[in-house]
Amino acid sequence: MCLILLAFRHHPEYPLVVTANRDEFHARPAAPVAFWPDAPQVAGGRDLEAGGTWLGITREGRFAAVTNVREPRATPPPQPASRGELVSRYLTGSEHPAGFLARLPETATRYRGFNLLAGDLRNLHYFSNRGGGTAPLGPGIHGLSNHRLNTPWPKVTGGCAALAVALERAGGAAPLLESLLALLADETVAPDAHLPDTGVGADRERLLSPRFIRGSDYGTRSSTALVVTGSGEVWLRERRFGPDGEIRGEELLRFPLRPGYPAAPPPV
Rank of each mutant, 00 (worst) to 15 (best):
I4R: 07
L6H: 04
A7E: 02
A7Q: 03
R9A: 08
E13K: 12
P15R: 01
N21C: 02
R22S: 06
D23W: 08
F25K: 11
A27M: 07
A27P: 00
W36R: 03
P40C: 07
P40A: 11
P40D: 05
Q41H: 15
A43E: 01
G45P: 06
E49G: 12
E49K: 14
E49F: 10
A50H: 14
G52W: 08
W54M: 07
L55E: 04
I57M: 13
T58Q: 07
T58P: 06
R62T: 02
R62W: 11
A64P: 03
A65R: 00
A65N: 03
V66K: 03
A74L: 13
T75F: 00
P76K: 12
P78R: 15
Q79H: 14
S82A: 15
G84P: 07
E85M: 04
L86F: 09
R89G: 06
T92P: 01
F100W: 13
L101D: 08
T107G: 05
A108E: 06
A108K: 08
F114D: 03
N115Q: 04
L116T: 02
A118D: 04
G119M: 05
H125S: 11
F127N: 04
N129P: 01
N129M: 09
G132D: 12
T134R: 14
T134A: 13
A135M: 01
P136Q: 07
P139E: 11
G140Y: 07
I141E: 10
I141L: 15
G143Y: 03
G143S: 10
H147C: 11
L149N: 10
T151H: 14
P152N: 14
W153C: 02
K155R: 10
T157P: 07
L167Y: 10
L167I: 10
R169I: 02
G171M: 10
G172F: 10
G172M: 04
L176H: 09
S179I: 00
L181K: 12
L183W: 07
L184M: 14
E187V: 11
E187F: 08
A190I: 13
D197W: 12
D197L: 12
L207I: 09
R214N: 04
G215Y: 13
S216E: 15
D217A: 14
T220M: 06
R221P: 03
S222I: 03
S223H: 05
E233R: 14
R237V: 06
R239C: 00
R240K: 05
P243E: 12
L253R: 05
P256S: 01
R258A: 14
P262Y: 07
A263G: 12
